[in-house]
Structures are given as structure tokens and as C-alpha cells.
């Protein structure tokens, strides 16, 4: 059981991802699917950020003024890993963009069929 406890953060994100995945596939309301997609993407983002953490009092990856002026050598273990944060900024932006386009399509469909249930729209098309 030891590995579960040491890595419990990973289990949390897996559960969150499954919730989002289920919502995307199983629900028929378009908005619920979109929200599920967002949960799914957020879980992945959380996972990435959790990679960056360093135990032992690491602070944010912003150099204090003493370090920034090069007065003494910077201790790497004192600062969090900045790279995953960077990647996730991009991923958050991408997920918002996808959310926007998905919602625009949902608005298009609502204007036309006046409903947001997928099965009713399918019936209306046929």
C-alpha cells in the first residue's frame, strides 16, 4: 500500500479524469459534455503541475532580489521546477479556446433546433 500513499496525488487526478471522461461520453446534454471535457482537461493540468513540486520548503519559481542580482550561487533545490508551469499555462489557454469553440457550436445548434439534448437534435436532423 506504500506506493499509493506516497503518490496519492496521482490517484486524485486519475479519479478526476475518470469523472470527466464519463461525463463526456455518457451524458446526452451538450453542455454537460462540454463541462466533462473541461474537467478532463483540468485533471491533466493538475497532474502536470504536481510534477513540479519539490518537498523541503521549495518556494515559487520567482527569484528573490538577492539571487536575482547574482550575489551568490542560486540553490536549485530551493525553487520549484518552472517548466511544467509553463507548459500548463499553454494547456490552460488551449483548453479555454476549445471550450469557446465548443460553446459556439452549441449556440449554433440551439439557434437552429431550440434544444440542447443530443438525441432530440439527431431526431430533428433525420
Amino acid at each position: 500500500m506504500d506506493f499509493i500513499i506516497a503518490k496519492y496525488n496521482y490517484w486524485i487526478y486519475i479519479i478526476l479524469m475518470m469523472v470527466g471522461f464519463y461525463a463526456m461520453i455518457a451524458k446526452t446534454n451538450l453542455i454537460k459534455k462540454i463541462i466533462g471535457m473541461n474537467i478532463f482537461q483540468t485533471a491533466i493540468i493538475l497532474f502536470f503541475v504536481s510534477i513540479a513540486y519539490k518537498k523541503g520548503g521549495a518556494t515559487l519559481p520567482i527569484l528573490t532580489s538577492a539571487d536575482a542580482h547574482g550575489e551568490h550561487a542560486i540553490q536549485v533545490a530551493q525553487y520549484l521546477n518552472p517548466l511544467p508551469h509553463v507548459l500548463m499555462l499553454t494547456a490552460i489557454v488551449v483548453s479555454i479556446a476549445t471550450l469557446g469553440v465548443a460553446l459556439a457550436i452549441a449556440i449554433m445548434m440551439y439557434r437552429k433546433y431550440n434544444t440542447l439534448e443530443e438525441d432530440e437534435i439527431l431526431k430533428a436532423i433525420k
Binding site: I62, Y79, N81, H85, V86
Partner: peptide, 18 residues
């Protein structure tokens, strides 16, 4: 990443590493 952390101040003149 260590390279980012140690060299960022000198190479980019930005204290915020992200």
C-alpha cells in the same frame, strides 16, 4: 530545469522564472 533556474537571471534579466 536546473539550467533554467541558475541561468535565467543572467540570460534573460527576469526574476520571474516562469
Amino acid at each position: 530545469s536546473p539550467q533554467y533556474i541558475t541561468n535565467a537571471a543572467t540570460e534573460t534579466a527576469t526574476p520571474n522564472l516562469v
